[in-house]
């Protein structure tokens, strides 16, 4: 089982990073962004736990270590473990070599 933990600063606390990113988005012409909050994303691979046990375990992990409840809030999503792609399938997905084209471009 995969637990995805999203950590952000509590509302009301100035997120200096988010504010700076918003300013940069404004500079790029994205004027429809009202607010940016920059946070942390943590993935936990879990084993041997029922759904409800996993939920309460991750809750305790967040309270005791993963977040600081004084300044941060969090949200947890549970999903199936993402299976790493095998070498063979990774090779199959790779686009065919385009050496000829590259050589032609150099000329």
């Amino acid at each position: 089982m995969l637990a995805k933990v999203y950590v952000t600063l509590k509302p009301g606390l100035l997120d200096a990073q988010g504010k700076t990113v918003k300013g940069a988005l404004d500079a790029l012409g994205f004027h429809t962004v009202d607010e940016v909050r920059v946070g942390k994303y943590i993935e936990l691979e879990l084993h041997g736990l029922s759904a409800s046990a996993a939920k309460s375990a991750v809750e305790r992990m967040c309270q005791q270590l993963l977040t600081n409840p004084i300044i941060e809030t969090y949200r947890v999503d549970f999903g199936a473990t993402a299976k790493p792609a095998s070498k063979k399938s990774a090779r199959a997905r790779r686009p065919a070599p385009r050496r000829k084209k590259a050589v032609a471009r150099r000329r």
């Binding site: 600063l9 606390l13 100035l14 200096a16 990073q17 700076t20 600081n68 004084i70 300044i71």
Partner: peptide
């Protein structure tokens, strides 16, 4: 008591 955040000026 309390916690530390990144400096406002980053």
């Amino acid at each position: 008591p309390g916690a530390m955040l990144r400096n406002t000026g980053l």
